[in-house]
Amino acid sequence: MILYLLCIVLFSIGLYGVLRKRNLVKIIIGLGIIEYSMNLFFVLLGYRFQGRAPIDAQDQAILTMVDPLPQALVLTSIVIGLGVMALVISIAIRIYEKYGTFDITKIKKLKG
């Protein structure tokens, strides 16, 4: 149970980073932490107490196998996270070229 709660704590830390930080890079790090926490949470959902790797062999009973599906899904989600991260970082670099700063309070040409 405590593991799940720690996941939520990690998620909240990431959300705090996204919402409260002024530096673009720190916001991106916060986004990364959110993604890690939810991947961790999903993998934990598939865990069984004292489980073993989900490999089916002839002389082994299918009793305490961990659920393999969340692992496959999290792998997909990590790749998606990588794509988002690469895009957001490249946008942040271009923003730095245009504005000369990472501070979001100084990046405000859009109004209304």
Partner: peptide
Amino acid sequence: TEAEELEASFKYAIMGSVASS
């Protein structure tokens, strides 16, 4: 890739990713 477009895209990307989470 003008200043406004990058700024809007960054905002959209961050909010959209949090929503996806």
